[in-house]
Design a protein around this nucleic acid. Structure first.
Length: 564
RNA sequence: CGGGGCGUAGCGUAGUCCGGUUAGCGCGCCUGCUUUGGGAGCAGGAGGUCGCAGGUUCGAAUCCUGCCGCCCCGACCA
């Protein structure tokens, strides 16, 4: 492709609205342009990469027996009402104003609709149906460029099986295919397993990429691969022991001491000698949560312990329930349910609030002084703590969800009445799985993981072009002749070449554009080296560059390519 | 949806607090000449509803009111 005849609008300056590296570079390298918040147009080179991702996905989906569909994005609302998802999606679903249609945010209903009455017998199963299609979600806050948009490309597939055992197989096939897809796209990913309790214990796995732009926080152990959303992640924090003789409880006057830090300073004690109190309201009843020192309550864990949703108590409620304001609340004398984090188990001589403003209590032994105290894992895992599985250190960081595989079960087949006859002639709902990949996210995540101060760094298996050929000062006939010939010859040899044949662009301009666009190998044809019958090559990733005789260029390129 | 920031030429911005000629600058763009291995030089030129609407004023990019759009943080995320 000749740049002089192409639309690749590169930008020297950073657009103000872009913040994260992938967004900045996708804009600067001319891959995308924004149309509206969360709505992006893909330009030729960007679309080329979208197609590349899609092709990789297609190959791997076809390899596990997937069959590609193309479903409508415009759906009758009625079909979504049958499964109750118009309400479930709420404002996230786009509705048309002049007809009862919605824009599909995903396609479980439509795929299930098509399976109904068609997958009639167990003999028709299993099936894997997929598509790569635009989805619409009215995100309250689109962000991070293409990573969270109101309109985005998604590969979604659905498996139909005769039993949950058979579903396990379809699920495993997807698990393997997904790993191949992300590996082929050069993504450094990890897998977070979760048994999502809310949906009836179905198994699901999320394919994640570490990134500050991520919306999930996960704990990950590089040693053994343990990974979990921080909302549920377990960890082994450093052990804490109490010291000294066991004392009896005693009251201390602590004027204006509210936080754990203030308490520690006032009494010259360590935060691990304190128990912090938090009052939550559950089903209109208060529960006191005790955490060691400054450990924060993990509300998700708390909710799963209690089996109900919680909210922090309002200041007025706290006063009414405990007789004190936040900062002076404690377990001794608290008359409602008390749950302490496991880390507090076995500790004594603890300090906590006295349920009386400006007073704290010392010498607390929770098991001795608090009747009916319960213990549970209520804290949030943090970097540096030990992995529950292998004991090595875990990392806690932000991550982007690239793909999600999910054992759906019969929710949609039941909702839409998609049944089949089993071996004994009994009608049963199809057992389904649902599996998604954010196509543009793959692209953005790749860039998040592969760039430097000059621009994008594509890798040889995952690049819009194999070679970027730069003809410097192309007004010189000698340069043009050689560069034109190289362009033709490299093309004939099967390389995809991006040819910078712009007449008016200076050398430096072309170099910087090439580095920005990130094609793995650059070949530079300039008058200077042509006198020696040589051209220059440069490896984008390493910056390695050298001169090579023109007749040795092809073998050099082969060598470079195989070493990349 | 809550909090914060921003909106001036294709991009990046000055000017806004404290109203006053023709809205300035860099990049990019067009024409010509020169230059040609790390984002060129000279000369000439085009390009603006100062986000939109209303108001105050002799006079509004600038002050007031309402709206729209974009970014960031948070909430939300089948």
């Amino acid at each position: 492709m000749r740049i002089s005849k192409s639309f690749i609008p590169t930008l020297k300056e950073v657009p103000t609205d872009a913040v994260i590296p992938s967004h900045v570079l996708m804009l600067r390298a001319g891959l995308v342009r924004m149309l509206s918040a969360g709505i992006y147009s893909f330009l030729p080179v960007g679309y080329k990469m979208v197609k590349k991702v899609s092709d990789i996905i297609r190959e791997e989906m076809d390899a596990i027996g997937g069959q590609e569909f193309h479903l409508p994005a415009l759906n009758p609302k009625e079909i979504w009402e049958e499964t109750g998802r118009v309400e479930a999606f709420g404002d996230t679903m786009f509705h048309l104003k002049n007809r009862d249609y919605v824009l599909a945010p995903t396609h479980e209903e439509i795929m299930t609709y098509h399976s109904k009455g068609v997958l009639k017998s167990y003999k028709d199963l299993p099936q894997i149906w997929y598509q790569i299609q635009t989805k619409f979600r009215n995100e309250a806050r689109p962000r991070s460029g293409v990573i969270r948009g109101r309109q985005f490309l998604m590969k979604d597939s659905y498996s139909f099986d005769k039993s949950f055992e058979a579903l396990d197989e379809s699920y495993d096939l997807h698990d393997k295919a997904y790993r191949k897809i992300f590996e082929r796209c050069g993504i450094d990913f990890f897998v977070v397993g979760a048994s999502s309790g809310a949906m009836g214990g179905s198994k699901s796995e999320e394919f994640m990429v570490q990134s500050d732009a991520g919306e999930d926080t996960v704990a990950h152990c590089k040693t053994c691969g343990y990974a979990a959303n921080v909302e549920v992640a377990k960890s082994v924090p450093a052990e804490v022991k109490s010291t000294g003789d066991k004392k009896e409880v005693y009251e201390i006057h602590t004027p204006n001491v509210k936080s754990i830090d203030e308490l520690c300073e006032f009494l010259s004690i360590h935060e691990q000698e304190t128990a912090k109190s938090r009052v939550y309201i559950v089903d209109d009843k208060p529960v006191l949560i005790l955490m060691l020192g400054n450990d924060e309550v993990n509300e998700t864990k708390l909710e799963s312990v209690l089996g109900a949703s919680v909210r922090p108590g309002h200041p007025e409620e706290l006063k009414k329930i405990t007789g004190a304001d936040a900062g002076s609340i404690g377990p001794v004398g608290f008359t409602h349910r008390i749950i302490a984090d496991e880390r507090l188990k076995g500790l004594y001589n603890l300090f906590s609030g006295a349920n009386k403003n400006d007073y704290h209590i010392g010498g607390i032994d929770l098991e001795r002084d608090v009747t009916d105290i319960e213990f549970a894992d209520l804290r949030t895992a943090e970097t540096g703590e030990k992995c529950v599985r292998c004991g090595k250190e875990i990392d806690v960081f932000k991550a982007i969800e690239l793909g999600h595989i999910f054992k759906l079960g019969t929710k949609y087949s039941e909702g839409l009445g998609a049944n089949f006859l089993d071996e004994s002639g009994i009608a049963k709902p199809l057992v389904m799985g649902s599996y998604g990949i954010g196509v543009e996210r793959v692209l953005a995540c790749y860039i998040e993981q592969n760039y430097d101060e000059k621009g994008i760094v594509w890798k040889k298996e995952f690049t819009p072009f194999d070679i970027q050929l730069l003809a410097l000062n192309i007004k010189k006939d000698a340069v043009r002749e050689v560069a034109d010939k190289l362009y033709d010859d490299l093309g004939d040899k099967g390389y995809e070449v991006l040819y910078d044949d712009r007449v008016d662009a200076q050398a430096g301009f072309k170099f910087n554009d090439a580095d920005l666009m990130g094609v793995p190998i650059q070949i530079v044809v300039g008058e200077r080296n042509l006198k020696e019958n040589k051209v220059e090559y440069k490896v984008r990733k390493t910056g390695e560059r050298d001169l090579v005789a023109i007749d040795e260029l092809y073998s050099k390129i082969e060598e470079l390519t195989s070493n990349l």
